[in-house]
């Protein structure tokens, strides 16, 4: 069953076309990646799904229902959790408070006890966060902040997890670690993951299927394995060269 379907999505920032008719779909339980160089329109896609941006035309369907006119805080209530580009942890607040805010809607529904238990569960995946529970999250390293952002998204118990550039600004060793964690989350099998990533090969390794975007258009699509060996991917990043 399709959990998310994007149909002919066009998004403009003012007069700039950031997305020029993108269509893609994600089956329940899949990990789908969108790869492409920066400026290609990946983050715009994510922000439009989660309601931070509204599209100029086209539609986004979640389980067959349009969500593109719903404001961000209501999209979050539909079990979609978005880990934004650049992590965006609440820097002045403690690690624990960030995690609690991730479960804001659940706590307001009265699931506080369950949330506390889930936070402990998160700590078992990211033991580093447990150690720094009361530390101001702005003082964490980039990798730790990425883990916190992931954890904050997971405590909301999403059906659909949106991951925007989890590698951004991280050192290669840390990127390894982050992608291992993404793989762990995937293997638990309880959510669909939509990953947007510049580092193509990292994303293709974990992805079931992937789309390549270039200048606001989808230029290629295939399974992770197929694309891994496709030379067109490299051209999408570094150009076709002088002709």
């Amino acid at each position: 069953m399709k959990i998310l379907e994007i149909k002919d999505l066009v998004v403009n920032y003012g007069k700039v076309a950031a997305l020029k008719e993108i269509s893609l779909e994600i089956e329940e339980g899949e990990l789908v990646a969108v790869i492409g160089s920066n400026g290609a329109g990946k983050t715009t896609t994510m922000n439009t799904i989660s309601g931070l941006l509204s599209p100029t035309s086209g539609d986004i369907l979640l389980n067959g229902k349009s969500i593109c006119k719903i404001p961000a805080h209501q999209v979050a209530a539909l079990n979609i959790s978005h880990v934004p580009e650049g992590r965006k942890v609440f820097a002045s607040m403690s690690v624990k408070d960030n995690l609690l805010l991730g479960a804001y809607l659940r706590i307001r529904k009265g699931e506080k006890k369950q949330v506390i238990a889930d936070i402990d569960d998160i700590y078992s995946i990211f033991p580093r966060l447990k150690e720094r529970e009361n530390q101001q999250s702005g003082t964490l390293s980039g990798g730790e902040q990425q883990m916190l952002a992931l954890g904050r998204a997971l405590v909301s118990k999403p059906k659909l997890l949106l991951l925007d550039e989890p590698s951004m600004g991280l050192a290669p060793v840390i990127i390894d670690e982050v992608f291992k964690l993404i793989n762990t989350i995937k293997k638990r099998g309880d959510m669909t993951i939509f990953l947007v990533e510049q580092l193509a090969y990292r994303a293709l390794e974990v992805a079931d299927r992937a789309y390549v975007v270039e200048q606001g258009n989808i230029s290629l699509t295939g399974t992770g394995k197929e694309l891994m060996t496709n030379p067109e991917v490299r051209k999408a990043y570094l150009g076709a060269g002088k002709s």
Binding site: P84, S92, L101
Partner: peptide
Amino acid sequence: KAIVAVSEDKHTASLMGIN
């Protein structure tokens, strides 16, 4: 805490479901 979150970053706060 939601108030503090909005003060700090209203877009990310809305991703948490905060109005």
